[in-house]
């Protein structure tokens, strides 16, 4: 494609960047790999040969057994899944609606409302914890997943609305006008536009999903009952209980990492494509 380049220069620029990149890959992956391989080893081997892969002698499933005997991780996973799925659904759906209204209609107070909704991007919701707790208690939602979901929706909306508004604005006008001429309702037009911002939706999805899955603060404060523990909180509590049992510690760390890693690997290809799609017009 580009013939003006000198070949040797090109070879150098092809291999040189790999040195820092590979070095950094090592740094990024090493801790994760270390935990996973040691979680399958027996206690003494963890301390004596931490860098080795488990061998027939050192292989042990003990940590995972402790984990499933003493903590209800299946339930924690279910809770996390429910919270993340419902929060995501409402964040994307309600966020898209609001963004559509802000982008599409020139009603009085539109800029102010946009600003009002954008404040939340800059101010962490955590600062309102004291009042959120009181609110949740007064609504009778303490120790329910509903409380978590509501807080996460509120937390995720500002960024979602902000980003989606930009994308909605750039949606082709002809499509909307044609639909209006055909007598389509405004709701119908929203449904027509929604698929067009799918890449943006996917991007927003991963950026809002990760903090929700990993949040320790609100589960700790709003839903720390045994029945409503999320994976992150469950792991934290479990680590506290079995902190001296390294088999169990490493197993629980591994188990808490795996689902989100898998989800990420599934989404990552899309994520990249979508971020890029967003910036290239």
């Amino acid at each position: 494609m580009n013939l003006s380049w000198d070949k040797s220069k090109r070879r150098a620029s092809n291999t040189l960047p790999h040195i820092p990149l590979m070095f950094f890959t090592l740094i990024a992956l090493f801790p994760i790999v270390l935990i996973v391989i040691n979680s399958f080893k027996e206690r003494k081997a963890i301390f004596r040969t931490p860098y080795h892969l488990p061998t027939a002698e050192t292989f042990s499933f003990k940590g995972y057994i402790t984990l499933f005997e003493r903590a209800d991780f299946e339930l924690y996973f279910l809770n996390s899944f429910i919270v993340v799925a419902l929060s995501m659904f409402f964040i994307l759906f309600l966020g898209a609606m609001a963004a559509f209204a802000l982008a599409e209609y020139d009603f009085p107070g539109n800029p102010i409302l946009g600003l009002y909704l954008a404040i939340g991007i800059m101010i962490p919701i955590r600062l309102g914890t004291v009042s959120i707790l009181r609110l949740v208690v007064s609504l009778g939602l303490i120790n329910t997943l509903t409380a978590l979901i509501m807080v996460y929706i509120a937390q995720g909306l500002p960024m979602t609305i902000f980003i989606l508004t930009q994308f909605m604005k750039s949606a082709p006008k002809d499509l909307k006008d044609a639909a209006r001429v055909d007598g389509a309702s405004e709701y119908r037009i929203f449904w027509l536009i929604l698929p067009l911002v799918r890449p943006a939706l996917a991007t927003v999805a991963i950026f809002t999903m990760v903090p929700i899955w990993n949040d320790l603060w609100f589960p700790l404060i709003l839903a720390n009952g045994e029945k409503t523990k999320t994976v992150t909180l469950g792991t934290q509590v479990f680590l506290g209980q079995f902190v001296i049992d390294w088999n169990a510690v490493l197993s629980s760390l591994t188990l808490a990492m795996v689902p989100i890693l898998i989800l990420y690997l599934i989404f990552s290809k899309n994520l990249i494509r979508n971020i890029t799609a967003g910036s290239v017009k």
């Binding site: 809770n79 997943l145 509903t146 509501m150 839903a223 029945k227």
Partner: peptide
């Protein structure tokens, strides 16, 4: 859901309090 903070998660174990 937003008005009464209803049971958005009927399948959630939290429902049986």
């Amino acid at each position: 859901l937003s008005a009464c903070g209803g049971t958005s998660a009927p399948e959630a174990p939290a429902a049986e309090e």
